[in-house]
Each structure stands twice: as structure tokens, then as C-alpha cells.
């Protein structure tokens, strides 16, 4: 569903991403871990076509992103770290607006049903979104993904700044989308959430995937230990 093929991105001298190979299958949650600057966000940007790869390709539902900039986004939903909505519009209006941009217009009752589904309290539907918490805005983002029937979902640090309860609710929603066959790529620092949600985990450092494994591979192992060790090793290799 989502596939990176030798994906490389250089900004001048800096190699932000170096030949990334990655695949996320339908119904799977893939968590990307890694320190700041490891290339997680660049990966997201390349899948979204926000940046052009220096080499390699990003595939979304069998479409080369670079050549199908618009078409590929019909199947792709994205929830940035901060879901910024138009503060003077309500959540419902925002949802209607953003869905309309992509041509997947939704009507009033549909909007209510969508927001209902992502668990936004009915009382909040028609309140100015400027008063929403981060979790509520994210729910609107998820509703948007549902509205456009996205087959792949990109999540950028979705749980940072959420309280544990909101974080839990969010994971449940993502899981339920996955169960419907959506492929999820999530970049995060939240090891707990990664362990909880991911089918597979990739650890990135300096633009490379330094470790990859299924949730089964970890078995009884401590994810934090694996993470720290691989990041340290990668740093040592880079220094050498």
C-alpha cells in the first residue's frame, strides 16, 4: 500500500534520507522511531509529495507519488503533528471544507456521523474549532481520513502532547481503521504507543533504517533498550 524504494533526499550536502526501503501493507501499522533529524518527517513529506526525492521512489497504492502528485493523495490521509484547523470555523465546517477540497464532498448528516464515529462529542461539532484541544482537532483529522476513504494513513507524532486517555482513544481509532484494511505509517517518539499499536517497527538514524522488526520479533525484549542500542551503534558507525 505504501512503499519506499531506495528513497533518497539530499538538501545540499545533508543527506536527510539515504536509500530507504520500506513497505506498509494493508491493515498494518508501521511505526517509525528515531531521534530528531533521523529522516522520519522527510519520509512523510516524500510520501505526500511535499518534497521531491533526489533518488528512488515513493509508492502509494501502486502510484508513483512523484508522477501522480494529485491522484496519489486520493488514497492517502495525513495527520500532522498539530492538526491546524480554521479557528473561526466549527469542526463540522472544517471537515466539510477539507473533504470538499479533495472532491469528496460530504453532506450534513454524513459529517455528523463521521464526527460521531471518531468520538467528537456532539456538543462540540458546531463550536469554533479555535476552542478545541489538540485531541479534538486530531479527531477531526481522522474523520477527514475516514471521509475520503483513505487506504493509507500517515501519522506524524500523533500522540505527543496528548494525555494518556486521549492517546489511548486515538490508538483505538487508528486500530479500528486498520481493521478495515488501511495501511498506517506512524512516526513517533512514543515507544509505549509504538509497542502497543505497531505491527512492525522501524528504527531510523541519520536517514537510514537501522533496525526493522515485527512486534513478534521483540517478544519479551524491551523496546527502549533496542532503540537506544541501535541508535548508539548507528552514531558510532557514522563517526567511524
Amino acid at each position: 500500500m505504501l512503499r519506499a524504494e531506495g528513497l533518497t533526499k539530499r538538501y545540499g550536502e545533508v543527506e536527510a534520507l539515504a536509500g530507504l526501503e520500506l513497505e506498509v501493507r494493508p491493515g498494518e501499522v508501521y511505526c517509525l522511531l528515531g531521534p530528531n533529524g533521523a529522516g522520519k518527517s522527510t519520509t512523510m513529506n516524500l510520501f505526500l509529495g511535499f518534497a521531491a526525492p533526489t533518488a528512488g521512489r515513493a509508492w502509494v497504492c501502486g502510484l508513483d507519488v512523484q508522477h501522480h502528485l494529485i491522484e496519489s493523495k486520493r488514497h492517502l490521509a495525513y495527520i500532522p503533528e498539530q492538526v491546524h484547523l480554521y479557528p473561526h470555523l466549527s469542526g463540522a465546517e472544517n471537515l466539510e471544507y477539507f473533504a470538499g477540497l479533495g472532491g469528496s464532498a460530504v453532506s450534513g448528516p454524513e459529517v455528523a456521523a463521521l464526527l460521531e464515529r471518531v468520538g467528537l462529542p456532539a456538543a462540540a461539532h458546531h463550536r469554533r474549532s479555535g476552542e478545541y484541544s489538540k485531541g479534538m482537532r486530531q479527531k477531526v483529522g481522522l474523520a477527514l481520513a475516514v471521509a475520503k476513504r483513505a487506504r493509507a494513513l500517515l501519522l506524524d507524532e500523533p500522540t505527543s502532547g496528548l494525555d494518556p486517555r486521549a492517546s489511548f482513544e486515538f490508538s483505538r481509532l487508528v486500530r479500528s481503521m486498520c481493521d478495515e484494511g488501511v495501511a498506517v505509517l506512524m512516526a513517533t517518539h512514543d515507544l509505549f504507543r509504538a509497542r502497543d499499536l505497531a505491527n512492525r517497527i522501524g528504527i531510523m538514524s541519520a536517514g537510514r533504517l537501522v533496525w526493522e522488526g515485527g512486534s513478534g520479533d521483540l517478544a519479551g525484549e524491551d523496546l527502549e533498550r533496542v532503540y537506544l542500542e541501535h541508535v548508539r551503534r548507528a552514531a558510532e558507525e557514522a563517526a567511524a
Binding site: 511535499f50 494529485i70 491522484e71 493523495k73 491546524h84 484547523l85 480554521y86 477539507f98 477540497l101 479533495g102
Partner: peptide, 14 residues
């Protein structure tokens, strides 16, 4: 600057 552009451009629109 309001941060809405990323969400906008993640929709199928140029």
C-alpha cells in the same frame, strides 16, 4: 503560518 496548509495539500489538490 496558521498551519492549515499541510492538511490542505495532503488533499488531492495542486
Amino acid at each position: 503560518e496558521r498551519g492549515t496548509l499541510r492538511l490542505v495539500l495532503s488533499q488531492p489538490i495542486s
